[in-house]
Amino acid sequence: MTDKNTVLDDVVNGEEAPPSSSSKRLAIEWAPFHRGKVGEETLVKRALRSTPLFENLRSRDWKLMSDLFHVRDYSAGEVIFEKGTPGLGMYVIVDGRVKIVTEEKGKDVVLTTLNHGDFFGEMSLIDEIERSAGAVAETQTRLVGLFRPQLQQLMTHRPRLGITLFERLAKIVVQRLRYSNQLLLQQMQEYKSQEQA
C-alpha cells in the first residue's frame, strides 16, 4: 500500500501530473504543510524501488548504493543523450517525462515516452555500446543515473551486491531479448501471410 492519497503527493512524486495548473495550485493551497516536505532522498528511493533492478534491496545496501547514484535535473526539451554517442549507464525517472527519439529520413521520430519510475539505457551498464536512440526531457525532469564506472567500483568493493545487480540486469536484458524475438516472429508471420495472400 502506498501513502499517496492526495493530489499533492502525486505532484511531489511526479506521478500522473494533474490535468491543469489550477488544480496543482489548489493542491498546494490545501497542502498539509505540517507533515513536512518529502526529502530528495525519499523521492529518489521511491523511484528506484519501483524498478526491477533496485527493488527489495536491504537497507544496508541502500546506504552503499546512494553513494553511487547521480541525481540530475533537466529542463523541458533538454537533451539527455544523443543517438550514436557512447553509452555510459542507465537513468531512472524520479520526476517528469522523457521521450526516446530516433531520426528517420532527417525527421525526429518518438519511439516511446517514459514516466516516473521508468528506466532507460540499462544496456550501457554492461558494455560501452553506442546509444541506439536519443533521450530528451519532455517536461522539467529529475533523473537518477547509475553508470558503468560506479557499477564496476561496486563489483570490486561489494561483489555480492554487484552480482545481485548484474543478475537482475541480465534478467532485464533477457526479457528485452524475448520481447524483441516475439516482435520479430510476429512480423515474420505477418510478412509470410501477406506474401501468401
Binding site: D67, H70, V71, R72, Y74, E78, V79, I80, F81, T85, P86, L88, G89, F147, P149
Partner: peptide, 21 residues
C-alpha cells in the same frame, strides 16, 4: 570520491556523461 562527485554534480548536463567517462 566525494570531492569528485561534488565537482561532477556542477558540470552542465551537456557535458555530464562525457565528464564522467
Amino acid at each position: 570520491d566525494k570531492m569528485m562527485r561534488a565537482i561532477i554534480r556542477r558540470v552542465p548536463n551537456r557535458f555530464f556523461e562525457m565528464t564522467m567517462s
